[in-house]
Design a protein around this nucleic acid. Structure first.
Lengths: 145, 145
DNA sequence: GTTCCTGCAAATAATTTGCATACCT
DNA sequence: AGGTATGCAAATTATTTGCAGGAAC
């Protein structure tokens, strides 16, 4: 497992430091997206002095390389999520616990057609995020009533 | 036209001030989304002293009432856009000139099915934005080559 | 040895807030 | 009159940057 992260970093020509490995470990184990500050809290359990800039810089680096993704959140703060699935897909985000799950369907062919045939433009990319309550939070809601 | 804005503000129980009318006029005439600061620049042509907080407060108020929409942009700054179409739809945003055009197709029924049947969750909302080059910017690209 | 990484302190910049005054109704 | 809107100055806060020392290669 750790060996994987080692190889990923090598492949990206990034130096293999204990903090980078830890960041990838924590991110990969997490099912919810995280803010840099939350990640730092978790890292502090292993490294007493870890600076917030280090966390920001590493997350950004990993996101640039496509190892993790940057979440666009309505509160306009930075959040990141380690994405195991490599094929094109989208995310369902639980508005209660922030758990992220994959959505495989993507109706973008139709939309691309609308843009290129209808608007005579050229579609380059798209961003889709779906919000709601995950299975667990639905159960909790029912139980607490 | 100005009468429309007057009635909209009345309907929202907001006071009708010259600046509010001007903000709505400028927003409605604009085909591209705008930052509070850009809007202020335009407003300065009519009002020599107009504070940025006023612009922020008014845009937020109008967005809360659904008169304009807040754009979620990857740069995490605030942008707003006056939306003429009231039915559910999405936006195609030109990455070159920021012109916004409507997209009517929305494959969300399928995604809702995937969330509710597959993930056993409950879908509440979704956010879709499509990026690319609009017709005009495509032409400019060809011409300038 | 050289280059990249990290921590600290300080800078940045968009957005928000407090408050006194001015304006709508 | 009474409440809301506005301008100004100041506060807030997430994020970024500079730089000196430390770690990886």
């Amino acid at each position: 497992m750790e060996h994987d992260f080692y190889r990923i970093l090598k492949g990206l020509k990034l130096k293999v430091t204990p903090k980078r490995i830890a960041i990838m470990e924590i991110m990969a184990a997490e099912k919810t997206y995280m803010s840099p500050d939350e990640l730092r809290s978790k890292l502090k359990q292993r490294f007493k002095n870890i600076g917030l800039p280090t966390v920001y810089r590493n997350l950004e680096e990993l996101a640039k390389e496509g190892v993790i993704i940057k979440i666009i959140h309505p509160d306009r703060k930075l959040y990141y999520f380690y994405c195991h699935r490599k094929e094109h897909h989208h995310h369902f985000v639980c508005v209660s616990c922030r758990r992220v799950e994959d959505i495989t369907f993507c109706g973008m062919e139709e939309i691309k057609k609308e843009v290129e045939d209808g608007l005579k433009g050229h579609m380059v990319s798209h961003m889709l995020q779906v919000y709601g309550f995950c299975k667990n939070c639905l159960i909790k809601q029912v139980v607490s009533q």
